[in-house]
């Protein structure tokens, strides 16, 4: 089988396109790269969506934790403690077990222009169920990072905002929030990287693979088991992840520049990835 064929057969296997039967014997390097690459689609999917969804929720939780109202701060603190204090591995398992208990019903949602059939069954599928777990998990970690940054917003900045007569919402939108983001960004970059790595746990515990559509590690395990040689499949996963990590660092670095563009050069927060292994 040629390399081009391997890619056309397996490059989108994880989404259910291409050859349905996975390679069994005489597996070529191209097939391994194509399959593991198709699995990476899911790793990217979980990382990107969980981060996007988690971002606003994390801001909310951070504000809750910083609030003087116990009705807001206690739930926020508990949420952060539980999700940061327990292994993601166990969270996946527990959520899967909880999701299968949801009664299986389907309903239609009429959006006016299109009819959607929604099924509660989807909760036990990785694409939704695991995404929810990752969303909650990253929200807790990011919230802690944002909370730390929130406490370090310079008092003077806030007083200046008061002095020029901003109301509470203006003050938050124009001063507190942008400053918090700027301070939190280096750590938040770390969180994004760790989050990307953690997506490899999805099919390892709890969530089953349907029609052998899984993530990069799922296929690597399959291939290592079929070829009896872990020395090819796992390094391929590693290479894919190094590229993915570099892309994350690049993207977040560009954002960091933007957040710091108004600062004097020596006061700029560098994307110092060293001191802040925060997760």
């Amino acid at each position: 089988m040629s390399c081009a064929e391997a890619f056309s057969n397996y490059a989108f296997r994880s989404l259910g396109y291409g050859e349905r039967i996975l390679p069994k014997a005489d597996i070529t390097l191209c097939e391994q790269i194509a399959l593991i690459g198709s699995g990476m689609i899911w790793n990217v999917y979980f990382t990107v969506l969980a981060l996007i969804a988690g971002f606003s929720f994390a801001t909310l939780i951070a504000l809750g934790k910083a609030s003087s109202n116990p009705l807001a701060s206690i739930p926020a603190k508990t949420f952060i403690f539980v999700f940061r204090g327990s292994p993601l591995f166990i969270q996946f398992f527990l959520f899967y077990e909880a999701f299968v208990l949801i009664p299986k019903v389907a309903g239609d949602i009429d959006l006016g222009f299109v009819q959607l059939t929604v099924e509660t069954r989807w909760f036990t599928r990785a694409w939704l169920g695991a995404l929810i777990v990752m969303f909650l998990n990253t929200s807790a970690y990011s919230a802690e990072i944002f909370y730390g940054a929130l406490r370090n917003v310079p008092k003077g900045d806030l007083e200046a905002a008061d002095a020029i007569g901003m109301n509470a919402s203006q003050k938050f939108r124009r001063v507190t929030w942008p400053t918090m983001l700027r301070l939190a960004w280096p750590s938040y970059t770390n969180e994004a990287i760790f989050m990307g790595h953690a997506t490899t746990l999805v099919f390892l515990s709890g969530f089953p693979a349907w029609r052998q559509a899984g993530d990069a590690l799922y296929y690597a395990q399959y291939l290592a088991e079929k070829t009896f040689n872990p020395f090819v499949a796992y390094p391929i996963v590693a290479a894919f992840f190094i590229v993915f990590t570099l892309i994350i660092i690049g993207g977040f670095g560009a954002m960091n520049k933007r957040l710091n563009r108004h600062m004097a050069p020596e006061a700029r927060g560098k994307l110092k990835l060293s001191l802040n292994v925060i997760r």
Binding site: I21, L22, P208, A209, W210, R211, Q212, Y222, E225
Partner: peptide
């Protein structure tokens, strides 16, 4: 996963959950 039953189902038309 990795059983003969899993490969059997993968090759039949049924939807395999591993």
């Amino acid at each position: 996963a990795s059983t003969i039953q899993a490969s059997y189902i993968a090759e039949s038309g049924a939807m395999l959950v591993e």
